[in-house]
């Protein structure tokens, strides 16, 4: 995966998160925790997964439904990068 596509994934993930938690993407940083800092709740969590599926075109498996993967913005980006074809 090129640096450009990695950056592109990062930007897209931040925008998806911003859309779900209704915050400005410019104010979201990698270290932000989705639940504690950005106010993600159990309903928004499913919306986030649906949006990521739709944006990146992958299908989540049963084992992916673990909020631990989506603890922070950084971990969410890593999760998506692992599932997007190189």
């Amino acid at each position: 995966m090129t640096n450009t596509s990695i950056d592109s994934i990062q930007t897209k993930v931040v925008h998806v998160i911003a859309k779900i938690v209704k915050k400005n993407a410019e104010n979201i940083v990698d270290d932000h925790q989705l639940i504690e800092d950005l106010g993600l709740d159990s309903l928004l969590f499913l919306d986030l997964l649906a949006e990521l599926e739709s944006e990146f075109g992958f299908e989540l498996s049963i084992d992916d439904f673990d909020p631990e993967y989506f603890h922070s913005v950084r971990s969410t980006v890593v999760f998506v990068k692992d599932r997007v074809p190189a």
């Binding site: 639940i35 499913l46 049963i62 439904f65 673990d66 909020p67």
Partner: peptide, 24 residues
């Protein structure tokens, strides 16, 4: 906590997903 609520909800959804329930 909000984190626990999220994890517990996700666990229930994971099981419903086996029945074909979509995210939305």
């Amino acid at each position: 906590s909000a984190e626990e609520q999220c994890k517990l909800s996700a666990a229930i959804f994971r099981n419903r997903r086996r029945w074909g329930v979509p995210l939305r």
